[in-house]
Amino acid sequence: MLRFILNPYILKRLVSAVPVLLGISVIVFAIMALIPGDPATAILGSYATPENVAALNEDLGLDKPLVQQYFIWLGNMLQGDFGRSFALNRPVLDEVLERFNATLILAGTSFVLCSILGIIAGVVSAANQYGWADKAITFVVLLGISIPSFFLGMMMILTFAVNLRWFPASGMWPIYGSRDIWALIDHLAMPALALSVVATGVIARLSRSAMLEVLRQDFIRTARAKGVHERGVVWRHALRAAMVSIIPVLGVQAGFVLSGAVYIEVVFQWPGLGRMLVDAILRRDILLVQGGVVFVAACYVFFNIVVDVAQSYLDPRIKT
């Protein structure tokens, strides 16, 4: 484990994440500093009592200069103190961590789903260029990237939950009954699928063109000349080479899946971070928004490091 972290390439990427994380905190802080009017009252919103306002002023040093305020805020966060949600009356970090679990399950499943489906669709499409499979996939992909995910989710509820009664319409767990893996899968199936549709489309498109690019190259002809079966040519030779340009796309799409989760969580009443953020905004629970945004952004930055490292293992030509 230690040797893995001390690998110079990974170390370099980890170090390079520090300024990005600092930058993110500055941006979030700056946006929040834009809030017009008295900051403490704006942050606490309608739930504020005079004691709360006084406590917050004390906490954030809102009477101090902005730069100093930033460092107090940053210092608190580094110590795991993201402030308190006055609407929920609990520490921001507790709420965020609890919600994060649900989002991770939803977005993670969707991400795996869209990666696998997207790549398979792209490869099949490219391997049968201009054939009926290619045309069908191209059409479905176009539909998939054009349909708003929240509308798709609603239509899925209507069809599969209300009319066909295959899946529960909302939530993460049954109200009664045991919270086992099957109950989770039952609740997860529709939102995870709805969330993965757009990203699947984008990944399928890019995989298709990456595959077409690779299939024309000389080493593909070599594989054929060796007598490699066409299945092997496509899935072993071409896809392996195309992965080098597909992996970065997956990294970008992870951000889109995370973003789309906000809508899907609202539509399917999934108890995740996205729904928490929307509720917090509508309640003007600013500290919760701030904490949630910084937390998710930090997770995303680390996810991207993982993608880069995966890339370096996939392509031996990148010096690690």
Binding site: I31, V278, V293, Y300
Partner: peptide, 12 residues
């Protein structure tokens, strides 16, 4: 480096 919606939500 942000998932775009976080930024949008923060602004809103």
């Amino acid at each position: 480096a942000f998932p775009y919606i976080l930024l949008a939500l923060a602004i809103v």
